[in-house]
Design a protein around this nucleic acid. Sequence first.
DNA 1: GCGACAG
DNA 2: ATCTTGTCGC
Length: 235
Amino acid sequence: MFTFESQGRCLTVAEARDWQQAMARQIVCCDDVGDVYTVAGVDVGFEEKGSVTRAAVAVLDFPTMRLVDFAIAQLPTCMPYIPGLLSFREAPAVLTALQQLTVQPDLLLCDGQGRAHPRRFGVACHVGLLSGIPAIGVAKQRLCGEHDALPVEKDSLVALMDGQETIGSVLRSRTGVKPLYVSIGHRISLTSAVHFVQDSLAGYKLPEPIRWADGLASSRGKIVEKASRILERSI
DNA sequence: GCGACAG
DNA sequence: ATCTTGTCGC
């Protein structure tokens, strides 16, 4: 029986799944967003052969998509990747990074599923509920659900279904590239979620906030330096 | 039993 | 996710 540390307590995989099912009932799936002046991208990377979890949050002005703040948190990795339990592995570092921010984001775009999850509680729901901030899940790959064929043109959109239930939207953010799997995280409707994702695109497959978070989470190159220079310039 | 399986 | 250079195409 595999167990892991979460919120100062040891959980078994079965207990973690039960917790997700219970927490999913607290997710607000209608719009409770207010005016959005800042949107943050959230992503996680791993260092030291996976022993260190590195979360990055990049806050951008909306809708100009200018970087206005960012934070990086490195914590020891608490558990391996288990499909469906990704958030237990990533949320601690993400929540830590969120607390380090100077500029509080009005909306979160999380790299991963939100409601499009077997128990309707992907990482975007987990982070959104525990932080209290409206959140959207933006995944590059499907975890569950089925959908009709999607036209190759940009802005094509089809529903992601699990039986008769709509759990998300499949959006072609760029012509000819693999689509994005958009689903609600917390305090937002699916329709608004898709609109915010589209309004955060800047010609690339991924929304700008997530592109920034991706770079900052993977610690590659001189992205942190570049981000730092942009921030001091805007002071 | 077999196939699927976010990051 | 991560290990990694060049390369084909819009």
